[in-house]
Write a protein that binds this DNA or RNA. Structure first.
Lengths: 196, 196
DNA sequence: GTCTATACTTTGATAGAC
DNA sequence: GTCTATCAAAGTATAGAC
């Protein structure tokens, strides 16, 4: 029986290389060399490069899930949770060396919509949209789906702009999200503001 | 002695294939077959695939420039020009078959920051940011750079979400941009609104 | 017996030659 | 325009080490 840690070690190495150089630019041999494992071992755990890339994307998806969950427990108000989500994503997106979010960049590298890698990445974004819509609905916004789409624009815009945006850009995005959430709730807050 | 139209024909073919299947996924042979020109002809016009890809990106950059210029002549008010820009980008971004904006996807495919293709794509986005900042400043906004960043989030978010967003998403983005521009001008309009 | 390391096969792509 | 050289990458198989 093979050591179960080997799979994780391989996936760790592959993830690091994929994040930095892109998926197609990294060869299996490079992963093997960097990992220090034999070629046989890798192909036992991952039948093909596609399988390895899919595992990588699933890990990235889990990473997003942790981010999302952490945002949800960070506050009781759904609006505050969404702001925290934007803040957390911004921190990653503008970090030096960040490169557009692994799911989006990998999706760009696998344009063929029939390819398993493409399908996994695409499914991720469907899920993300559903999750953000759920949280947007919980804010009690007048039009939760429109609110969700606005927040998705901010989130994906953040990833796309990346390090070029810098810390200031990340703060801008957070303030932006706050404004969006404030103005998306016309019944209560807007009246209070007008009464000032 | 060679027909000058040949270069354009090759670039037309390459652009179409790159847009649809991605740059790395398209081989030179495929371009040659699709174009109907000889291999010699192609390599006389473009010394290497990198050169061809750079020419493709420059054409995409010119395309953006036309979009930007058209938005600028569409209205006299800079704020209206920016809204028109968002509308025009949205129309492209959510069109069926669109795939994230050719500059961004190609940048994702060429992660190496030393690669000529990467540098050309990166330079494009620096230019775009400068242009949007210029237009944002012309609106007389209190903080034009912050306004520009907010609009860039919308623009890139639009490209990233693509056809999944659909026509409704494009309309959401336009309304979003309108709100952003409205609230970015505190001196005049905000006072008018409060006086209502 | 599973791990590492390496040699080999095949495929496909860029590029050049005629 | 076809044919060919070169190279890199994905897999497969094999040889050796703990």
């Amino acid at each position: 029986m093979p050591t179960p840690a080997a799979r994780d070690r391989i996936l760790d190495t592959a993830s690091r290389l994929f994040d930095r150089y892109g998926v197609r630019a990294v060869g299996m041999q490079q992963i093997i060399d960097d990992c220090g494992c034999g070629k046989n071992t890798l192909y036992r755990r991952f039948a093909s490069k596609d399988d390895l890339v899919v595992a990588y994307l699933r890990r990235c998806g889990d990473d997003w899930q942790r981010l999302f969950d952490a945002a949800q427990v960070s506050a009781s108000d759904p609006a505050d949770q969404l702001v925290e989500l934007v803040r957390a994503v911004g921190a990653r997106a503008v970090a030096p060396g960040a490169r557009g979010g692994p799911l989006r960049t990998t999706l760009a590298e696998y344009a063929d919509s029939g390819h398993p890698v493409h399908r996994v990445a695409e499914a991720h974004f469907v899920r993300v949209r559903t999750q953000v819509r759920g949280l947007a609905a919980a804010t009690g916004a007048a039009d939760p789906d429109e609110l969700a789409d606005r927040l998705l624009l901010i989130l994906d815009g953040l990833y796309a702009n990346g390090p070029a945006f810098g810390e200031a850009g990340a703060r801008t995005a957070v303030a932006f999200a706050e404004d969006v959430l404030r103005s998306a709730r016309p019944p209560a807050r807007a009246l209070i503001r007008r009464s000032c």
